[in-house]
Design a binder for these strands. Structure first.
Ligand SMILES: NC(=O)c1ccc[n+]([C@@H]2O[C@H](COP(=O)([O-])OP(=O)(O)OC[C@H]3O[C@@H](n4cnc5c(N)ncnc54)[C@H](O)[C@@H]3O)[C@@H](O)[C@H]2O)c1
Ligand SMILES: NC(=O)c1ccc[n+]([C@@H]2O[C@H](COP(=O)([O-])OP(=O)(O)OC[C@H]3O[C@@H](n4cnc5c(N)ncnc54)[C@H](O)[C@@H]3O)[C@@H](O)[C@H]2O)c1
Lengths: 239, 239
DNA sequence: AACCGCTTGTGAACGCAGGTACAAAGTCGC
DNA sequence: GCGACTTTGTACCTGCGTTCACAAGCGGTT
């Protein structure tokens, strides 16, 4: 009713902000849809998608509603249409150049992983301080000395930097990446990076993941034998 | 005030539940303290710890308050005392046996990583379906055939299972782990695992991390120039 | 053409997490 | 011994995320 009027007033696009938690789930939905596109089905309901993504159907609909009306009531969502909408919302299909610093065991695994390229993320620069590793070819790219960091970032216009160096040097690597123009950083080193405003950092901390699991395990076991806690199912309840 | 009274009523320990987000941060604090213990300083203030951990000082104090009074007013927290308190809260120092399924590039990197063992997490079982990999020694452990999964879990009493197999087989591997008695699972495969109640699953999704960074990057750039938005047709066509 | 069933989209309520501000409490200096 | 300073611990508030429930809308059917 006044939705069309409003869209006229705002000229274009969605001024609405999308919560970060929603963005993360949108990426999951997109991957599920990619697997679904192979099948012949042209439509999916929120219930099916939610089941495949492991989330609540109502939450999924609310997530999608941030992109505006995407589905058809009584039918569901067009698989191809929703894919386009999601890819557009998440930054389009354009290739996103990334640089990876620290080509150790973890770094090499990331550089060699095909799942990133299929989503538009390409490692155009692999950097390491170890002369032994420089010159190696990993995942279709040659490892270059860390001294080339600035020039590689400048040449490739890399937007994302991934840090898989030892923790001690992660901050200095981060500083150099930011100085070179990188404004998005994914950090695997177990340190809290300090960055200037306007730079986004996401941290992947595998030790913490294990420690949380250990805590939940202990909490579960600790609650069972000794005393109290009449409802053991409440905590472990799965959706 | 009535906190002490209440603690008397409940006899002992902490019946208070600790939010999962807090647990994750507690693990970070513990790691920061480990690095700090080498130094001579016997006390740290919430401000120092918070700066090192990259969080708000008040939030850190609130996190620690879940464990009961840990610090001394006017002085700070005893480094050694807080370490003991945190390790106890997170499940003690006892070694936690883990099994790792799928010794590919990522799995091998994890199995070879020294940072887990130093926190009590030991990979006591490495399993893979590829006969080529069976028999390899990775990180002080020999890769065994996937058929041994049940016996390995039973023998080692592994509490945590880590899945680094291709996505297609992740659910079946998960089912076997759960059936064998594993109640905590860390999943790297890009699928939503379905588990029965009482089993905890945590998922690490690196593609999603990159995609969120890409979105934030796009959102930042999209906000700077006045107009445009390269996909104007999508909305008009919708309605 | 009107009805019916199915699914979306969203308003409202709830619970949780993070931040601010302040009072309690202990130590250090004199 | 006492005062003042420092730092903790917590109560309050605000905003976010999630869930529930329901009305609106569309396709198919009669
Ligand atoms: N491997 C894992 O499973 C794992 C798990 C959790 C966290 N991490 C973290 O990820 C990071 C890397 O782990 P890893 O196992 O690959 O270690 P690694 O030692 O195998 O690799 C580190 C690489 O960084 C390079 N490097 C060192 N200093 C550098 C510098 N100044 N500039 C550029 N490169 C430099 C080294 O040459 C090496 O190739 C570490 O911070 C580690 O704590 C790893
Ligand atoms: N490598 C990365 O950087 C990366 C990044 C994100 C996600 N992942 C995910 O992690 C998983 C592993 O990635 P990878 O790069 O190590 O792949 P990989 O192909 O190198 O390793 C997979 C391993 O699993 C083994 N395997 C296959 N089927 C199995 C089964 N039924 N039982 C036991 N083992 C089996 C294979 O033999 C192989 O050794 C994948 O799901 C991938 O999507 C990897």
């Amino acid at each position: 009713m006044f939705g069309s009027l409003w869209s006229l007033l705002v000229t274009e696009s969605r001024p609405r902000i999308i919560p970060e938690a929603t963005v993360a789930r949108l990426a999951v939905y997109l991957r599920v849809l990619a697997g679904l596109a192979g099948d012949g089905c042209g439509h999916v309901s929120s219930g099916e998608l939610a089941a495949a993504a492991g989330v609540n159907p109502a939450g999924l609909r609310k997530d999608l509603s941030y992109l505006g009306p995407c589905g058809v009531r009584g039918v569901g969502y067009s698989v191809s249409g929703l894919r386009e909408r999601l890819t557009a919302a998440l930054g389009g299909e354009r290739s996103r150049p990334c640089v990876l610093v620290g080509i150790g065991r973890l770094g090499a695994a990331l550089a060699d992983y095909a799942g990133f390229a299929s989503r538009g993320f390409q490692f155009v620069g692999l950097l390491d301080a170890d002369p032994e590793r420089v010159g190696d070819r990993v995942g279709g790219c040659t490892v270059r000395p860390i001294a080339d960091l600035e020039s590689v970032v400048a040449d490739t216009e890399a937007a994302i930097g991934v840090i898989t160096t030892p923790a001690e040097v992660a901050q200095s690597v981060c500083d150099r990446l930011v100085a070179a123009g990188v404004r998005s950083i994914l950090n695997f080193a177990p340190v809290a990076l300090t960055v200037p405003g306007g730079v986004d950092v996401r941290k992947v901390d595998l030790s913490v993941e294990l420690q949380v699991l250990a805590f939940l395990d202990q909490q579960r076991d600790g609650g069972r034998p000794p005393v109290t806690v009449p409802v053991p199912a409440a905590l472990g309840a799965q959706r």
